[in-house]
Amino acid sequence: MLRQPTPKILILESQMIIAADVSLQLSKLGYDVIGINTHSGEALKTIENNRPDIVLINIEWQVETEALRTARIILETFRIPVIFLSANTDKELFKSIIEARPYAFIAKPFEKKDLQRGVETTLKRMAAEGLWANHIKLV
């Protein structure tokens, strides 16, 4: 058995205070937070240069359509799993979120364990889909 490396996570969030809090919680849970980005252009550059395993996106990060567009690029072009965070409970918005095919959705406010569940179930799905195992094997 190969030892699993620590999953690298990128956070896309406009409010630094929230992002820092999320990042702290993720670090405590043993994940490697590779950065926090507040603009979509920067985010894609970060991803190109230092490929994360998972991207956490707060849907309120940008205008919703912009956040969803970036999420689709990350999911479809980079093939990196996305987890959405949102305080918005609007049904239509959730429909668009689902259509982007994220790996998990975490409703705000959330606790540390909700983050952990979101990330861990995402890693399980990635392993089942060959994203996580291939990553170890081939890179």
Partner: peptide, 19 residues
């Protein structure tokens, strides 16, 4: 859900958890 239970539950590869 203490951490031990959670880690065990993960081995069944669930699609999600609902509290």
């Amino acid at each position: 859900s203490d951490d031990a239970t959670f880690q065990q539950a993960l081995t069944a590869k669930p699609y999600a958890f609902i509290s």
